[in-house]
Deep mutational scan, measured.
Amino acid sequence: VFVDDHLLEKVLELNAKGEKRLIKTWSRRSTIVPEMVGHTIAVYNGKQHVPVYITENMVGHKLGEFAP
């Protein structure tokens, strides 16, 4: 499973602090992992960042699938 390192670091850091804030990313190719559930990730679609709230059903899919 591929997840960009910088994105995973941000998610794990927020989980350690117990925070839930918006994470901006250009990494549409990253796979959604269970650690991301409950976070809102702003995924770049080529024009703007689209906020995507991550749920359990999204695990295993790519971030780009949810930012048309």
Rank of each mutant, 00 (worst) to 15 (best):
M58E: 12
E65R: 13
N45A: 07
I41N: 00
G46R: 10
E13N: 10
S27N: 04
P51Q: 07
I23L: 09
G60V: 03
H61P: 01
N45G: 05
L63T: 06
T25R: 01
T55V: 13
K47C: 12
E35Q: 14
G64N: 07
G18A: 05
H6W: 15
M58W: 05
N15A: 03
M36I: 02
A16R: 13
H61A: 13
M58G: 04
L22W: 09
D5H: 15
H6P: 03
Y53M: 12
L63W: 00
S27E: 06
V59N: 07
V37K: 13
G64M: 12
E65F: 12
D5F: 15
T40Q: 07
I32D: 00
V11K: 00
K62T: 14
H49F: 13
H39Y: 03
E56R: 12
V1W: 12
D5Y: 15
Q48P: 03
T40K: 06
I32K: 00
T25H: 01
A67M: 04
E13K: 08
V50S: 08
A67P: 04
S30P: 03
F66T: 04
G60W: 15
G46P: 02
V43G: 01
D4W: 03
M36Y: 09
N57G: 11
A16S: 12
Y44A: 05
S30Y: 03
H49I: 02
D5S: 15
K17S: 11
Q48S: 12
H6D: 12
F66C: 06
K47Q: 09
V52H: 04
V33T: 07
T55R: 12
S27A: 09
K20H: 11
K20I: 06
A16H: 08
G60M: 15
F66K: 05
H39Q: 02
K17I: 12
K17G: 05
T40W: 07
P68F: 09
D4N: 08
A67I: 06
Y44K: 04
G64E: 12
V11I: 14
L12Q: 10
E65A: 09
D4H: 05
I23R: 01
P34G: 13
T31G: 13
K62N: 10
G60S: 11
K62L: 12
R28T: 07
A67R: 03
K20W: 07
R28E: 03
Y53T: 13
K20Y: 11
T25L: 01
L7F: 01
